[in-house]
C-alpha cells in the first residue's frame, strides 16, 4: 500500500475543502439551520409526535442524511472531475499508485468532509431540538458506511461526467429529490397507500430509515433491510469503480 500517495491526494483534497470553507462547510450548516426553523418551527407545531418522537427530533437524521449524501457525492465527484477537466489527471495516472489507492485518497477526503459536516449539523440541531441517540455507535458506523458508499458513487459520477452540467445532474436531479421523497421530513405512514408503495422503490428511503433507527430505535423499515440495501449499494459502487479502472473508461486512452 502506497500510503504517501494516498496521503498526498487526501491532503490535497482537504486543502481544497478548506480553501472553499464558506461554500463547503458553513453553507450546509446554515441551510440545515434554516430547515429547522422552517420545518421544525412552522410545520413541527402542527405535528405532535411520530412514533413517540417529536417532529423536530424526527427530522434530525433526515437532515443529516440529506447533507451527507449530497456532500459525499458532490465532493468526490468534483474531486476527480477537476483533474479530468484541467488535465492534471495525467499526473495521477502516471504515478506509481494503484486504482484503489486513488479511490481511497479521493473518497477518503469526501468521507471526512461529510462526517465533519454531519457532526456540525448534529451539534447545530441540539440548539433547536432536544433528542437523544439510542444507538450512538451504530449511528456512527452507519454514518461512516453511508458516507463511504455515497463518496464512491460520487467518484463514479465524477468519472462519468464530461461537463459541469452532467456533474451537477445526478446530485441535483436524482439524489436531492430522492432524499426529499425518501422520508427525510416525514414518516412514510403519513402518506396515502399508493405513495407508501411507490416510496418503497426509492433506495434512499432505506438508507434514511436505517440511520433514523440508530437514533430512535424505531423507523418505517427494519434496520436489517436498510443495512442490506446500503451494503448492496456499496458493492455495486465498488464493482463499477473496478470496471472503470479495468477498462480505463473516460480516464485512460
Amino acid at each position: 500500500m502506497n500510503f504517501n500517495s494516498i496521503k498526498a491526494i487526501y491532503k490535497f483534497e482537504m486543502a481544497r475543502a478548506l480553501r472553499t470553507i464558506m461554500q463547503s462547510i458553513l453553507a450546509p450548516v446554515l441551510s440545515t439551520s434554516l430547515y429547522f426553523i422552517v420545518f421544525g418551527a412552522a410545520i413541527g407545531t402542527k405535528i405532535s409526535t411520530i412514533d413517540s418522537v417529536s417532529y423536530g427530533a424526527f427530522i434530525v437524521p433526515g437532515l443529516i442524511m440529506l447533507s451527507v449524501m449530497t456532500t459525499s457525492v458532490n465532493f468526490a465527484a468534483f474531486g476527480i472531475y477537476l483533474p479530468k477537466y484541467n488535465g492534471s489527471i495525467f499526473e495521477i495516472m502516471s504515478a506509481p499508485i494503484s486504482a484503489y489507492e486513488i479511490v481511497i485518497g479521493y473518497a477518503g477526503a469526501a468521507v471526512s468532509k461529510s462526517i465533519l459536516i454531519s457532526l456540525l449539523i448534529l451539534l447545530t440541531s441540539t440548539i433547536f431540538v432536544d433528542f437523544y441517540i439510542k444507538h450512538p455507535l451504530l449511528m456512527l458506523f452507519l454514518l461512516i458506511l453511508i458516507s463511504i458508499t455515497f463518496s464512491l458513487f460520487g467518484f463514479i459520477v465524477g468519472i462519468w461526467a464530461t461537463n459541469f452540467e452532467k456533474l451537477q445532474l445526478i446530485p441535483l436531479l436524482i439524489i436531492t429529490p430522492l432524499v426529499f421523497l425518501g422520508g427525510s421530513f416525514y414518516s412514510v405512514k403519513m402518506l396515502p397507500e399508493l405513495w407508501q408503495f411507490v416510496t418503497k422503490f426509492n433506495p434512499i428511503f432505506y438508507v434514511i430509515n436505517g440511520f433514523r433507527w440508530s437514533f430512535f430505535g424505531t423507523a418505517d423499515i427494519a434496520i436489517i433491510i436498510s443495512f442490506s440495501f446500503i451494503i448492496i449499494f456499496l458493492f455495486i459502487c465498488l464493482i463499477l469503480i473496478g470496471l472503470i479502472f479495468k477498462t480505463g473508461y473516460r480516464i485512460k486512452g
Binding site: 483533474p83 488535465g87 492534471s88
Partner: peptide, 22 residues
C-alpha cells in the same frame, strides 16, 4: 499543455507531486 490546478500555490503543487509518487 498546462494541466495545473489554477488556485493551488507553486510550493503545494510541487509537494503534492512528490507525495503522489510515494
Amino acid at each position: 499543455e498546462f494541466p495545473l490546478d489554477s488556485y493551488e500555490s507553486v510550493l503545494n503543487t510541487v509537494n503534492f507531486s512528490r507525495g503522489l509518487f510515494g
